[in-house]
């Protein structure tokens, strides 16, 4: 197998806050292959956006990478300066689709002018070539080519988001990082945008790192997934493996919390409590306090992300009880009487 496009290994990211050093990402590892759509899922506070920002050097001022590596095409990029990132990666190799389109287009510049500016900074292409590329991409995302010279306010919300996608894609990057690209949009518009992303995947072999809280979108559109909870990757693997054979309690409870219109009366799972704020070294499973199956061990050390199942080589979960939790859940639901018995046994 060829080398993955993006490899993240043991990544730890911290933020300096008044209350101490907040751990936003703790020992996260995953990789994105060429042409792969990879979904990074989790609730607010899981560290998914922080991970994505770290890849393109976009952490907030009080945040820093405290350990681990980020490799792009084999090259370590976590220590790149802004200048290096601009010269080697941003836009032409890795591009970024932000969550809120309203703020990411300059309202005073035509879309084409913004494209020219990006193109001039990051490539040697002529203005004419840049315009041509942008036009092509407008066509792909379903905007009229002639509208590249429009100002952002001349587009509706959904069209602006598509214009941003066109801007992110027109230099033909290998990897696109999209942070909740459709969260603010209605379902029909969301579906339209994924239609274009699908097309890009087929035509241009781009890879996508999709950050979203919406696991339905990931299961539907991505090849692989990593589910994060409070700084840790709970489970990762191919979407089919994680869907069919989930091992981490958070992964399957999170999955079951989503409605599926095929079963409109199925009870939705509720995960009690909130993700903890982790100050300093994380020395337990961050899901312990919300987990119905937590045992003493879970409080004492952070479970490593270890391979599980034989369905898929990348399938891994970080749970001490990964081989029994899903079974218990399926048999007894999230309130498991035997779990308490076992918890006591584990404690003894």
């Amino acid at each position: 197998m060829s080398r993955p496009l993006l490899e993240i290994e043991d990544l730890t990211i911290r933020y300096e806050t008044d209350g101490g050093d907040l751990t936003a990402v703790s020992n996260a590892s995953f990789s994105v292959d060429e042409g792969e759509f990879f979904g990074l899922a989790g609730e607010s506070g899981s560290g998914k956006s922080t991970t994505a920002k770290a890849i393109i050097g976009g952490l907030d001022d009080n945040g820093w990478i405290d350990g681990g590596t980020i490799r792009y095409r084999g090259e370590e990029i976590q220590d790149f300066t802004d200048k290096e990132l601009n010269e080697k990666l941003r836009w032409k190799e890795v591009s970024w689709i932000p969550q809120s389109s309203m703020n990411s287009l300059d309202p005073l510049q035509r879309v084409s002018e913004q494209a020219l500016e990006i193109g001039r900074v990051h490539t040697d292409l002529s203005n004419e070539a840049i315009r041509e590329k942008l036009k092509e991409m407008f066509d792909v995302v379903g905007l009229q080519q002639s509208r590249i010279d429009d100002y952002p306010h001349q587009f509706s919300g959904g069209m602006q988001q598509r214009a941003i996608i066109a801007l992110a894609l027109f230099l033909e990057p290998s990897l696109v990082i999209a942070d909740e690209p459709t969260t603010a949009l209605d379902v029909i518009m969301q579906d339209q945008i994924f239609k274009y992303l699908d097309r890009m995947k087929d035509d241009a072999e781009i890879s996508l790192l999709l950050i979203t809280h919406d696991i339905s979108v990931i299961f539907e559109s991505c090849d692989s997934v990593a589910i994060m909870h409070a700084s840790q990757i709970a489970e990762r693997g191919s979407t089919t493996a994680v869907h069919d054979n989930p091992r981490h309690p958070y992964a399957f409870m999170f999955k079951e919390a989503f409605p599926d219109i095929r079963e409109p009366s199925r009870d939705l799972e509720v995960i009690e409590g909130y993700p903890p704020e982790l100050i300093g070294e994380v020395s337990s499973c961050s899901f312990t306090d919300r987990c119905p199956w937590a045992v003493e061990e879970c409080h004492q050390s952070a479970p490593p992300l270890e391979p599980v199942g034989d369905d898929d080589a990348t399938h891994a979960a970080s749970c001490f009880r990964s081989d029994e939790a899903y079974e218990l859940y399926e048999r007894y639901g999230a309130t498991d009487p035997s779990a308490e018995v076992e918890a006591e046994q584990g404690g003894n």
């Binding site: 379902v187 029909i188 979108v217 299961f219 539907e220």
Partner: peptide, 24 residues
């Protein structure tokens, strides 16, 4: 119909056709 068919299905085995609709 368009609205219902655009709702994502949380199942990688389910092959839902993307929306036919364009524009807003």
């Amino acid at each position: 119909e368009a609205l219902v068919s655009a709702i994502p299905i949380p199942d990688p085995h389910h092959d839902r056709a993307r929306t036919e609709m364009s524009g807003a």
